[in-house]
Design a binder for these strands. Structure first.
Length: 348
DNA sequence: AAGTCGGGGTG
DNA sequence: CACCCAGACTT
């Protein structure tokens, strides 16, 4: 399949996107980008990556940073275990003799947070080592090219595709080849509406018909609803500290509304938001109120102007933004902006 | 082999 | 809405 490779590489040289981690692809930059890109789209990662490289420019800077700082820089990206694993990876790397990642994918696989995909991706992209890196994009592209019709949820199907990917590896521009396969999946060989007419592999693809593409099996989502409490006293908002509750163990959270403990307030009006977390779809309401008796001892009263520095789940931060009349369209609110806005709103 | 873990982009 | 995304780790 040398034909496939030459066509793919020629297309990549022409069509690849200008992405920040392609500017100076050091092993560190490649590793940071790969961790951030796990189950996360490129457009979401770009601003996080740029801020991260400013704040933690190399392995040493990351390794010596406190974990709270690392998590704060990851806030809003999701899958927070990745941040801890990357932090742990940095500490392992600086302790290695060369102070750098190994280039062997088998050795990479032993390090924290580096699975089969990421090991192949770092080896090939950062070190130009011929290694296969099979992510969701590559799986889809190869399944179409080789007319693999098995269910993607079945390990046997994925194993067949992985074998195809491994058989395609050559010692010819491994870095560009790995990125080209993924870039094709991201720009041309799309999940729903592949642009087959524009595809460099169109002539040799076994299944160029967009109407007959394999799809992943569905996941069932469970619906939930929750009411959270907005209680402010003396410029401080009552929050649940980290370490409690089923979700976001590292985060501060809005407390759950307790009918027996709280009295709803007439103003301001409640605000609502529906958000998804893993396989759940949660309809959340933020209810303003006050304490019926004494405040719950496990809650902390946090000054509104300090909220920007706290670790808050994205949906909770959005609810707070809406309660204070902010647009909230920016999704992730910058800490200084939040602090300033909250202080201003608290004076109203 | 199945569950868990976030959040946003997109048709 | 549902699906998908440069997956890894735990049970």
């Amino acid at each position: 399949m040398d034909h496939l490779r030459s066509r793919l590489l020629a297309w990549f040289d022409r069509a690849q996107r200008d992405l920040p981690w392609r500017r100076h692809p050091s092993p560190y930059a490649v590793a940071v980008s790969e961790f951030m890109l796990q189950q996360t789209q490129v457009a979401t990662v770009i601003p996080y990556f740029n801020r991260w490289m400013q704040r933690f420019p190399d392995w040493s800077a990351l390794a010596t940073a406190p974990e709270s700082t690392v998590l704060k820089a990851w806030e809003g990206l999701g899958y927070y275990r990745r941040a801890r694993l990357l932090h742990g990876l940095a500490q392992r790397v600086v302790a290695l003799p060369g102070g750098e990642l190994p280039r062997d994918p088998v050795a990479l696989r032993e390090l924290p947070g580096i699975g089969p995909y990421t090991a192949g991706a770092i080896a090939s992209i950062a070190f130009d080592v011929p290694a296969a890196a099979v992510d969701g994009n590559v799986e889809r592209v190869l399944a179409r090219v080789f007319d693999e019709r098995g269910d993607f949820a079945m390990p046997a199907t994925r194993a067949r595709i992985a074998a195809k990917a491994a058989a395609l590896v050559r010692d010819e521009r491994p870095s560009a080849y790995t990125q080209a396969l993924m870039e094709l999946g991201a720009l041309v060989c799309l999940p729903r509406n592949p642009h087959c007419a524009l595809c460099p592999l169109h002539a040799l693809c076994a299944r160029p018909d967009p109407a007959r593409v394999p799809k992943k099996s569905r996941t069932t989502t469970t619906r939930e609803s929750e009411t959270l409490a907005w209680i402010v006293e003396e410029g401080g908002l009552f929050l649940q500290p980290p370490g409690t509750g089923p979700r976001w163990p590292d985060f501060w959270k809005l407390p759950v509304w307790e009918e027996s403990m709280m009295v709803p307030a007439d103003a301001p009006r409640p605000v609502g938001l529906t958000y998804g977390i893993t396989r759940y779809r949660v309809a959340a309401t933020l209810q303003p109120g006050s304490w019926a008796r004494a405040s719950q001892p496990e809650l902390c009263r946090v000054p509104l102007e300090a909220l920007g520095e706290l670790l808050l789940p994205a949906p909770h931060r959005k609810l707070i933004g809406r309660m204070l009349g902010q647009d909230g369209k920016s999704g992730q609110l910058q800490a200084p902006v939040v602090a300033g806005s909250l202080a201003k709103a608290a004076n109203d």
